[in-house]
Design a protein around this nucleic acid. Structure first.
Lengths: 219, 219
DNA sequence: AATAAGATTTAGACTAGGCTAAATATTGTT
DNA sequence: AACAATATTTAGCCTAGTCTAAATCTTATT
């Protein structure tokens, strides 16, 4: 079993490997963990001793197979608990992150699997992020940023890139929720804002918004 | 907010105060916490600095009002999660303790209250122990040990004193579950065993068993 | 190729929580 | 009242995880 801190490092490395496939730098990890580079170096050595990461001084860090498996297990638990909080306990999608950060460290395989079953094996968490199955497989779907769609294209809103309270509240206010159909009516090249049709209404959204909304394009 | 270790100490002191009302001794607490007396002394000083306990050297320790409130909150969470695990996730009553020990430290008042609501405000956990309400009030009911009932008396099985896997499995095997009616048919004074009627069958149980089963006597 | 800037690691210190061994206080028994 | 047994506390050390400051490595620029 791994400590809370070890699990959080593994999770952070997992997320950063998307951006830095060749190895996650100490500084990037320090920023993600909201700690100092020296602390990261210490912890990364410990993780390396346990064969959870591959680490070469000054060259950054990568997850080992076991490290990756552990990180995915933590992410699986995080997202399942988020579904539980929203679906069963009346939380809204902007309230669940901090609580799931605690719940994701509860150690019991049976608990995770029974929770998954109880929730009906959900495929995505309340923010549209995919939930890995018990074997650690994500079903990845072709999603794009709304900002990258062409004029005239349409699709389904499937996730958010920014999960901050502020952004989620903005979406709530404008009745933009996961599963909704969205069509790009017009692109304004000057400020990169978009005119979209959603809920049968036209809505103008800024680049800031469209860069943080994932869409599964039709066809 | 208090640390995991602090919460566990408060909980242990709370439980021991039932037996040692005049102050819980360092050694008793050390045994309960499965640690050394010297470690207990250190921690008790810290709790005292935070006004969670009243402590006088060599004289034992007692919970302050705030300490008691905190302990009860932890116990409330523990028991609610046990209900959740048994009622919603198909756990049996002998499997839930260790997981609830982890879940009881999750910090979110809203989570606790919503969980309570979701479960229908249960009054007792799967072992028959009362669940305090959000204000920290236990509803105490008149329960007795089965061993202390007279021949001919009858009642309802409402709880267990020993929550060990072994004991709970024994009860399962003999179809003794909470809510069942039990009548004392005969007391054997020689070995203090009892002949009881339960499930319309006669069953002989030893003193060891009858000393660990709580009964709410009829009238 | 040299060097300055930036990134990373090392050294040494700190806190929480725990341990062992030694010192001290309390209690029970004569 | 004294002393032995037991309980408790103190002193000093340990590990995990963190920090600051100093040292060292890498990289970008000339």
């Amino acid at each position: 079993m791994f400590s809370l801190s070890e699990e959080n490092y593994l999770k952070a490395i997992f997320h950063l490997e998307r951006k830095y496939a060749g190895g996650v730098s100490t500084n990037a990890l320090a920023e993600e963990m909201e700690t100092k580079a020296s602390s990261v170096t210490d912890m990364v050595k410990k993780l390396s001793d346990k064969d959870l990461v591959k680490y070469r001084k000054y060259q950054g860090v990568q997850l080992s197979e076991q490290g990756k498996r552990t990180a995915i297990e933590v992410i699986r638990k995080h997202r399942l608990w988020e579904v539980f909080l929203v679906e069963k306990l009346n939380f809204s999608w902007d309230e669940v992150h901090d609580i799931a950060e605690q719940l994701e460290h509860i150690k019991s395989e049976k608990l995770t699997d029974e929770l998954d079953k109880f929730l009906g094996h959900p495929k995505r968490d309340p923010h549209g992020d995919p939930i890995p199955d018990a074997e650690g497989n994500f079903r990845i779907s072709n999603k794009m940023l709304l900002a990258d769609l062409e004029e005239g294209q349409s699709g389904i809103c499937v996730g958010v890139k920014d999960s901050s309270t502020e952004f989620l509240r903005y979406l709530d206010k404008n009745e933009i929720t996961l599963g909704k159909a969205i069509k790009i009516v017009q692109r304004e090249e000057y400020d990169e804002s978009l005119l979209i049709k959603i809920n049968d209404k036209d809505l103008r959204i800024s680049k800031t918004i469209s860069k943080n909304l994932f869409i599964k394009p039709n066809d």
